[in-house]
């Protein structure tokens, strides 16, 4: 509706059209600051990063980046460390996502009605999302420590304690459990908002047709919730695939690389081993991976084949 069509009558442009062009001018003026900022500090760095990914550059060296073509990408292709980090990142996303979404949906359904204390419940559930990932990782660092909460509870039930963050099989699961806990509340609040957009009369109609609770959920709730569910899943994928802070705090990528996510590898490659070109190439592969997963999620969400 923004399109201004040339009118055949050249004389006396109507007031309406003048108004429209004035609006357009103001519209343009209003978006200029945001557009400039995004162009310079979001899109600019993406292009710069793309150039870097074809270069060799060490922050320690006194000379600038040197163009080396596809070498960085070629290097990644046969790099077992990178392949492992990709697999770890994929596993991390896949084992955190389903429990988070399913439990959050269950809680949203349970709390989607007015009763005493429901506000308190929603607020309390949202608190882990507000507290920084750094801070909650610190708390869980203690929870998982040798004399931490988990081991004390196990000891109470007569089970033997474990070093949760020190075994290859356990460390990533420990981090995953923490992320489920952290993401639960925000997912729940978003799904709750989604539930409230489902038209009430549809339930009425379903009930008239004799649908039971489960059938109503399948026929009314789930389709109505689809857009929000898709959004929640896509956002979770984007966040989880970039896991870094919790790894930095809890395990530093270990034990022996079993929690080295791609983002953690990028950080060490760039700032520990000073290879910013290779790190940039990794970042773009991760970008493609995240985009691919999100597109699959969105297509499934829209009911199309992936």
């Amino acid at each position: 509706m923004a399109v201004i069509k040339p009118r055949p009558n050249r004389r006396g442009r109507p007031a309406r059209q003048r108004l429209h062009s004035r609006q357009a001018r103001f519209g343009l003026l209003f978006v200029v600051p945001a557009t400039l900022y995004v162009a310079i500090f979001q899109l600019g760095p993406v292009l710069y990063g793309l150039v870097l990914s074809f270069s060799q550059y060490s922050p320690l060296s006194r000379s600038g980046p040197q163009f080396i073509g596809l070498d960085n990408y070629r290097g990644l292709y046969g790099d077992p460390e990178f392949a492992r980090a990709m697999a770890i990142t994929g596993r991390y996303v896949l084992q955190v996502l389903p429990p988070t979404v399913v439990i959050a949906l269950g809680l949203a359904l349970l709390s989607n009605r007015a009763f005493r204390g429901v506000g308190l419940f929603r607020t309390a559930m949202y608190v882990p999302h507000v507290i920084s990932l750094t801070a909650v990782s610190m708390i869980w660092l203690w929870i998982y420590s040798d004399q931490g909460l988990v081991n004390e509870v196990l000891a109470f039930f007569g089970m033997s304690e474990q070093r949760w963050l020190a075994t290859e099989s356990g460390a990533l699961n420990a981090a995953s459990a923490m992320r489920v806990w952290k993401a639960l509340g925000s997912n729940m609040v978003l799904l709750l908002a989604g539930l409230q957009t489902v038209p009430k009369d549809l339930y009425e109609a379903a009930r008239v047709d004799g649908a039971n609770a489960w059938q109503q959920f399948r026929a009314v709730t789930l389709p109505g919730l689809r857009p929000m569910l898709t959004y929640v899943v896509a956002m979770d994928i984007i966040y989880l695939a970039q896991g870094f802070t919790e790894i930095f705090v809890l395990t530093q990528g270990g034990p022996y690389g079993s929690t080295t996510t791609v983002n953690y590898l990028i950080y060490t490659e760039a700032f520990q081993y000073n290879d910013m070109g290779s790190a940039s190439a990794m970042a773009f592969v991760l970008f493609a991976f995240i985009a691919g997963l999100s597109i699959i999620a969105i297509r499934v969400g829209q009911g199309r084949r992936p």
Partner: peptide, 13 residues
Amino acid sequence: WADMSPKLNTAFA
């Protein structure tokens, strides 16, 4: 100790 090398590298840059 764990942060020394990254911090130093960025500081040199």
